[in-house]
């Protein structure tokens, strides 16, 4: 499904600010896997997502999706089968366009965008159906400008736009981090809904350990651009937040005073 081999990425190489963001990382996702990724700030989680989605190219290594080498395929070509939701609720939608126009854009991910009408009545019906199958209360506001929606609503729309066309891989970059607890839970529920509905292969970055344990079937912990801990389904079910802390400590062999605060 998704295969990462020996990925390396160094920023500002050859300067005093040199930083190894990803250090020889390998990871394989099987069809239907839902992997949660945790790690402190600067561990390379976001860089990893950016490399998978093609925003950044790795210095070394190989990325394959469905046994096709996509390592240096540009972002806009890759996003045919990669759906993404960003941390910033403003980033995933176009504020000056209506909900239906945004959804039509999402549809254009898999169909070549031509001179057909963007929002046809047939599509309108399709959008309505899709939106009403989730508890987002947006189905009657198709004409509303997205800029008028709240952060939570925009994030829900981003999530539905990212998954509308059933991408091969869904990348979630702390997509609930900017929301209040109630909204975050709402988005979490929608995420679980939509992922199970289409059996999407998902990689989710989070800072919330509870969330990382409660969602998905695999868990990885990153630090300094490496995977330092890996739990499969059975192991993950047994894990507690405390265990994760200990794992982190063990792997790093240093006190967690600072990281404890960061990781909650």
């Amino acid at each position: 499904m998704l295969q990462l081999q020996q990925i390396e990425k160094v920023f500002y190489e050859g300067t005093p600010d040199e930083k190894t963001a990803i250090n020889g990382l390998s990871l394989t996702l099987e069809e239907g896997d839902f992997v949660t990724v945790i790690g402190s700030n600067g561990a390379g989680k976001s860089t990893l997502l950016n490399i998978i989605s093609g925003v950044l190219f790795p210095d070394q290594g190989l990325i394959a999706v469905d046994d096709k080498n996509v390592t240096f395929l540009p972002e806009h070509k890759r996003s045919n089968w990669i759906g993404r939701v960003f941390q910033d609720p403003m980033a995933g939608t176009a504020p000056n366009m209506s909900i239906e126009e945004n959804l039509a854009l999402a549809l254009g991910r898999v169909e070549r965008r031509g001179l057909r009408k963007g929002v046809s009545s047939k599509r309108k019906k399709q959008f309505k159906e899709w939106l009403s199958s989730f508890n987002v209360k947006l189905e009657d506001r198709l004409n509303t400008r997205v800029g008028l929606l709240s952060g939570g609503e925009r994030q829900a729309l981003s999530l539905l736009m990212a998954t509308f066309t059933e991408p091969r891989i869904l990348l979630l970059d702390e997509h609930t981090a900017a929301l209040d607890p109630a909204r975050a839970e709402h988005i979490t529920n929608i995420t679980n809904d939509v992922v199970s509905k289409h059996n999407l292969t998902t990689l989710m970055v989070t800072h919330d350990m509870e969330q990382a344990l409660s969602m998905g079937n695999r868990l990885i912990m990153m630090d300094d651009g490496e995977i330092i801990f890996h739990a499969n389904k059975e192991e993950k079910d047994q894990l507690t937040v405390e265990d994760l802390m200990n794992e982190f400590q063990k792997a790093k062999g240093k006190t967690m005073a600072n990281d404890k605060a960061l990781l909650k």
Binding site: S53, E75, H76, K77, R78, S79, N80, R84, F86, A91, G92, T93, A94, L105, A106, G108, R109, V110, R113, M161, A162
Partner: peptide, 8 residues
Amino acid sequence: RMVKSLSA
């Protein structure tokens, strides 16, 4: 940024 992530 968004349109790029929607393969445009």
